[in-house]
Nucleic acid binder design. Structure first.
Lengths: 223, 223
DNA sequence: GCAATAGTGTCTATTAGACAATATGGG
DNA sequence: CCCATATTGTCTAATAGACACTATTGC
């Protein structure tokens, strides 16, 4: 059966680039593969589509995150789909790539049973020698995320429920890989219905208190 | 085998929304399905991935166009991938959607052997009751194309090798579904390296002759 | 000359970038 | 008061939209 499968049907799987912010840097989660092929190498969390349990490709991606990272995905977006005979030594394979956004503290440090270990890497330089074509995948996912944020979508899924405008700005900067102008940035936010003040709540420090904000009812991460 | 396939492996196929300009309108090509399922209904040209002959998903799409429409695809872009148990009565299916751009006169009027007939439909209203989820596919492909053109990519693949700025403007308007300002449009083109004059060549009519332009060396349809 | 469309210019409203000024709590 | 950062304001340059004007050919 295995050899006939190889000839007739491609292997379909989903991979997920899970992004998070760590110390004002954009990070992507890699897992060390527990099994062949590419055993021991670092890769995006991914897994084979199960027609009997998955109701959609996004479902597959959510299940992968649940099984390998033990996390419930909040926001998923499709990036692209890659296919070819040489991507995976097991034969013709199709991989549907997603990215996900999540605050760091919601991701458990311990990997799921199917994974050796997990590691957060700099999203712009996830390191050399990733498994399969996953270096390309990370680059594509980052480009897609950047594109959306360049178009003024607010990446609130990466932030805690309440946050200051400066935190939001630092997050945007981490994604874009460049600084943005404070005054112009805030000017834009003024007319943005996806953001609302939390009345009377402030972040305090050794300076003027900063107003806390939250996502408005029905917020979606769209440009 | 068929029932075990149904349970274990999804059916993977590629669908293509082929866009063209007809009388200054953006059109999409539909084919009437010759076989079950959905026999006789109108759908995007599509077909099953063949691991033994296709070297990539884009290759699959090109082969589909060759077989069903008898046309060599010039430009293909991936739109998205759809998957689920109910899209196709044959079971869990995955469909990778592309769009293609081509001048009308390069598409033969007669369909390939695997197709009953072909028809050009208004891209924004391809008609009711398309097969499968292809109405959604057309909408998604159009949105992707519009997005790119909104971002000032020039859809030169839809035009003949030599064209006037007015023809280009009409094409952009057909895609966007709205008029654009002539003066602002031309102002933008001035600084666009993807476009160059054809020295001394003009389109003549009952008015001032119009300079002909062509795509620059190495043009790619990107924003 | 006239019709018809090509091609250019001008004015204004809006927006983005740079930078400065003010505000406020903790110590 | 002073520090550090929040928050707001101002000036300017660049851009887009609206609209008008000029150019050139066929008839």
């Amino acid at each position: 059966m295995s050899s006939s499968r190889k000839k007739l049907f491609p292997l379909v799987s989903a991979d997920v680039a899970l992004f998070s912010i760590e110390r004002e840097r954009l990070r992507v989660l890699l897992v060390q593969r527990a099994n062949v092929p590419e055993q021991g190498r670092w890769a995006l969390p991914g897994g084979v589509l199960k027609p009997d349990v998955d109701a959609s490709l996004e479902d597959t991606a959510r299940r992968i995150l649940r099984e390998k990272i033990r996390v419930e995905a909040p926001y998923l977006a499709q990036v692209a789909t890659y296919g070819g005979p040489d991507r995976d030594p097991r034969g013709w394979s199709v991989s549907v790539l997603f990215y996900a956004l999540l605050p760091l503290d919601q991701v458990p440090a311990i990997a799921g049973s199917k994974t050796e270990a997990v590691d957060w890497r700099d999203a712009a330089r996830p390191g050399p020698a990733l498994a399969f074509d996953h270096a390309q995948h990370v680059a594509a996912a980052l480009a897609k995320l950047r594109d959306k944020v360049e178009r003024h979508a607010l990446p609130l899924h990466l932030l805690p429920p309440k946050f200051t405008l400066t935190q939001l700005q630092r997050t945007v900067e981490a994604i874009l890989g460049r600084e943005v102008e404070k005054s112009a940035f805030r000017r834009r936010l003024k007319g943005d219905a996806t953001l609302e003040e939390v009345p009377g709540e402030f972040e305090r420090g050794v300076q003027r208190p900063a107003q806390l904000y939250r996502a408005s009812e029905g917020f979606v991460f769209e440009a």
